[in-house]
Amino acid sequence: MKWNTLSAGLSATALVLALVGSAHAKDVKSIAILTPEQGTDFGWNQQGIDAAKAAGEKAGIKVVVAEGLGYGDVRPTMRELAKDGATLLIAHASGYNTAAPEIAAETGVAVAIVDTPKGLKAGSVADYTLSGHEGAYLAGRLAAKMSKSGTVGIVVSGEPPSWNSQSAGFAQGVKAEKADAKVLYAVIGPAAYADAAGGKRVTEAVIAAGADIIFGQGNGSSFGMLEAVETAKAANKVMFIDVIGDKSKIDKGNLLSSVVWNMVPVYSAMIADLKSDTYGTKSYKISLADDSVRLLKTPQIADDVWKQIMALRDDVISGKIKVEPVFEAAQVRALMSSVTEPPK
C-alpha cells in the first residue's frame, strides 16, 4: 500500500514536472528583425532580413521586419514589437547592443544581439557574432593570385568584431599565397556605415597607393567603394571583393567575388533554442563547412584559379589549413602592411 502510494505520488510529481517543463518551453509564434538600413543593400541588412524570413517560413512562424531604423535609439520600436507579441527580437546592428538587452529585461521578450559574445543571458539574450573569416581567407588567397601590382587594399566603414575577423582572414590569406604582397588597410571613419562619399575617397587613396584589388566592408559606404573601383584611373583594372551579400546584379564588370553569408541556419537555431528552452546559452556561428559562408564565383575568376580556391576551401574545412578568427582591431592592424615598406 505504502509502495503504491509512493509510486502514485512519484508519477504525479513526474507529470507535474513534465507539464511545468512544457509550459516553460516557448510557444514561438512570431519573431521580429530590426535593421538600421533598408533590406535592399545587397549586404548585411538584406541578408539578415531574407534569412529571418526564410527561417520563419521554415519554422511556420510569422516574421515582422522593421527596417531602415537608422543608428539611433531603437527602444520605442522594440517596445512596440514586443507589445505586438513578438517572441524574439533580432537586433541586427551592433549599435543596438545596449538597447536590446535593456528591452529584454523590461519586457521579458528574448533578444538577439551581435558582436557581444559575453552578453549571453539564459532565456533572454543571445549573441550572433558572425565571422566569415574562413571565407575571407579564401578571398585573400584569390586576391593575391589575381593581383598584378602585388598590392591589395582593405577598406572598412568601421571596426566591429565581425569585420575585424574578416579583415584579418583576408590579410592572412594574401600573405599565405604571396608572402611579399602588401595589404593596405584603411577605416573610413567612426561608424561610417552610410558614408558613400567617404568610401569612395578612401578607396581612391588606397588605389592611388598601388592596390588593384579592394576588399571592401561597408553597408551604404560599400557602394562608394565600388564607384571608386569602377571609375579608377589606374594602370591595372581594379577589382572589388565584397562581403556578406551578392552584388552581381548591379556589377559593371569590377566585382571579383564576395564572401557571402547565409544566416538562415543561425536564425533557425535561435528559434529551435527558444522552443527547447535553451535560448541564450550559446553564441551562433557560420562556417564554410555548412555553406553558411561561401565565396562567390564571378566571370572575372578563371576556372583554373577557382579550382585552386575550392581545393583550399576543402583544406580549411578538413582542418589542414587553420584560420583562427581575430576580433581585436589592434591585432588586425598588426597584420597589415604599410605603404612606406620597401618592395621585398
Binding site: D195, A196, A197, K200, G220, F223, G224
Partner: peptide, 16 residues
Amino acid sequence: FLANVGAGIFVPFMTH
C-alpha cells in the same frame, strides 16, 4: 556635389 561628385551615388543618410 556630395552625391554626384563625392560619391557618384545616392544612399540614405549619406550626408553623415
